[in-house]
Design a protein around this nucleic acid. Sequence first.
DNA 1: CCCTGATTCGC
DNA 2: GCGAATCAGG
Length: 194
Amino acid sequence: MSWTDERVELLKKMWGEGQSASQIAKELGGVTRNAVIGKVHRLGLSNRATSNASTKAEPKEKPAPAAKAEPRAKPTPKTEPARKPAPEPAAPAAETKPIPARKQIIPAGQPLPPQPSANEISPEALAKVNEVEKKAKKLTLMELTERTCKWPVGDPATDDFWFCGLPVQQGKPYCEAHVGVAFQPMSARRDRRR
DNA sequence: CCCTGATTCGC
DNA sequence: GCGAATCAGG
């Protein structure tokens, strides 16, 4: 792949939006995040310092052909990146509103309202979930990544609230156990007449 | 571990 | 100009 005008344009756009290099690379396809970063720098984008960029300390670096691990001087001031992480256009785990199936433990505060449809979920699946919750990594919102289970556990109003955080199932926002209760086959929807 | 961007340097 | 390898940090 080459840097066509279109691709460069998209790159600029996304970079401007605060998208990460890897995200941009994914979007573009055919390039790695390194390629994206390299291009960004060549284009002169990168971080737009408020107006300082001096103090180019000692650029004197000795090649040191023998020592490959020669530490390169990196006096990058790295003042606060003025870049603001644009809020995810598509909320990660907002697509499907899962109602964590809980036993009967009410942490504290308000008694949770009756779960709308914590009904016809495979008992095995539920059991699994309860199992998993013990091993959950208990991540905070900020710690969630693209491959950590985003299943919420506990009461958000309490400090006893966290996300599963286990490795997600390929392509899914949840780990295996939680995928099991989050995505119900339509066929299971058969109780009420209809 | 996962991730981020920054830099170097052979191509 | 390009981007893999590497570095540095969260």
